[in-house]
Design a protein around this nucleic acid. Structure first.
Lengths: 240, 240
DNA sequence: TCAATAGTGTCTATGAGACAATATAAC
DNA sequence: GTTATATTGTCTCATAGACACTATTGA
């Protein structure tokens, strides 16, 4: 900081949060998008998010607030972690905005947010966003890409996949999480063996779940561990 | 954003960057720290960094500028990637400051920054920071922890380890990178085989490097690939 | 019965980890 | 020669991946 005057004051910048909410619906990997009601880019799809309410609101708190306001989701029971900051000048036409992106994982099937405050929210297949079939406002597509890559990576070494499931789940359900996020298909029988060989990952919950057809599936619950060893390895290297 | 007045303006916040510069010196994993010359916390060690110069400076650009100003390192040839944003209120006694942290990997042995602008910079063993033997200003210890965990993780599936090496390197040198970052020891003979079995990771550079004693080591260069498959797996699960 | 899904067992190729043995330098 | 480091080879065990087979439900 040499050469700066004693009177120099650091510049101040508007700070926002954006949230990538991921879930599994009918075995398909989805992200929650909002139709923007205001300019700029009114009418296009965007991630839920917004500016800090006031100068002293915590960024994590702001993320939880937006989660509630825009997606009608309660933070408890959701996995929420920070992704990165997106703050290059020019990313927002309104001016200099630095946005801190969060990734949230929602279990089960939170219905597409009924007639609530978040009625213009919709679950969109992640694939449609990555492929460009659905276009997003600002740099939100890149943010989704980063979130998906983060999720793909964490599925290997952490029990993050369980955040996509309810308190109890079947191994087939868990398999669909891995398949949906990784974008590949796995052998159910090998998956079975592999998952149960990782200490602390899942443990039997004692009961079963009846499906429309076929043998009922045993229910499992989280085994308490967060680090998977040995790790689950993706069969095909996914490009970053 | 319902219920907000049309006149409402988003709050503005001071934005800074902090850089975790990692390197390998004499087979020991080091981080670059600066002795703070100004209040608050003058005299304690801290990560190089500082506020944006002006409202329109890019955060990545600011990180590169601080890299040059405070550590006298040139960005070219350095691996620089963003880590995360640290912006909870209360983390900086000066007021509300949001800091975007970057991780930089430096190869070889950039001397501890001679009599330059960055004369109060010093390489400190990462272990001393993690263990608390050296205490850091603000939440910088947490930032270093996060950077180390990021590096440990990326060593598994990407060729990031090569960023710690020069243009050519021996496999023993590469092994020391893995050992230093992961904090474990590896069998040289198995490491040899494993590294060379990963397509696109390393390739022979044709020449050798003579050591003080023993058989000269073959030199290698980067193989061009960035994703490692099969991945290098850590022998012991390191807690986050 | 059949259709459908859950779960077990088995085989084989590959990689991990341990470690003996050899190669090539300085002295 | 000795010492030190690099590199190759070998052995054994565990895991991945392929896939036949059995189990348990609803219709």
């Amino acid at each position: 900081m040499s050469g700066t005057s004693d009177l120099w004051e650091p510049p101040e910048i508007q700070v926002a949060v954006d949230i990538v909410i991921l879930t599994m619906r009918a075995s398909v990997f989805h992200v929650l998008l909002i139709e923007r009601g205001e300019e700029p880019q009114a009418g296009t799809q965007a991630l839920p998010g917004g500016f800090l309410n006031n100068k002293w609101e915590g960024i994590y708190d702001a993320a939880l607030r937006e989660l509630k306001e825009e997606a009608d989701l309660d933070a408890s029971g959701l996995h929420v972690e920070q992704l990165a900051a997106y703050g290059e000048p020019g990313r927002d036409p309104r001016g200099r905005v630095l946005s801190v992106a969060y990734m949230a994982i929602a279990p089960g099937l939170p219905e597409p947010s009924a007639g609530t405050d978040a009625s213009d929210a919709a679950w969109v297949p992640v694939e449609d966003v990555l492929s460009g079939k659905v276009s997003l406002a600002f740099d939100h597509r890149q943010i989704v890409r980063d979130a998906v890559e983060r999720a793909r990576s964490k599925l290997e070494r952490t029990s993050l996949a369980l955040a996509f499931c309810g308190r109890t789940f079947t191994l087939t359900e868990l398999q669909h999480v891995y398949e949906g996020v990784w974008g590949c298909s796995l052998d159910p029988r090998n998956f079975y063996r592999k998952v149960q060989n990782i200490p602390g990952f899942v443990e039997p919950a004692g009961s079963v779940r009846r499906m429309a057809a076929g043998r009922p599936a045993r229910l499992f619950r989280a085994g308490g561990g967060t680090v998977l060893y040995p790790p689950m390895v993706r069969p095909v290297p996914t490009e970053s």
